[in-house]
Amino acid sequence: MALTLSTLAIGKFDLIDSIGGGPLVAFLLITIFIKSAMISEYFMGLKVVRWRWRMIPLIYLIIVCGLIWIAYNRA
């Protein structure tokens, strides 16, 4: 829970991100990944479930974040 709240604090910090730039986007994507992975792992309770089910959201997150990263670098 504490971890979730701390990532949330970073989420608030996102607000002042108006400078832009690659590293910040990467940073945000990583926070997205951490936050969402925590949701699926702890909240959804997939941490204790067979890999088959657990992997689906994780792989999904990696693909989505990765492709967004590619799209942003293309610009």
Binding site: L15, D17, V25, T31, S36, F43, P57, I68
Partner: peptide, 19 residues
């Protein structure tokens, strides 16, 4: 409900913040 949350966690930074 968690799924709804999960989606929002991606949606918010993507659409509102990242530029």
């Amino acid at each position: 409900w968690h799924m709804v949350d999960l989606v929002w966690i991606i949606l918010f930074p993507l659409v509102y913040v990242i530029r």
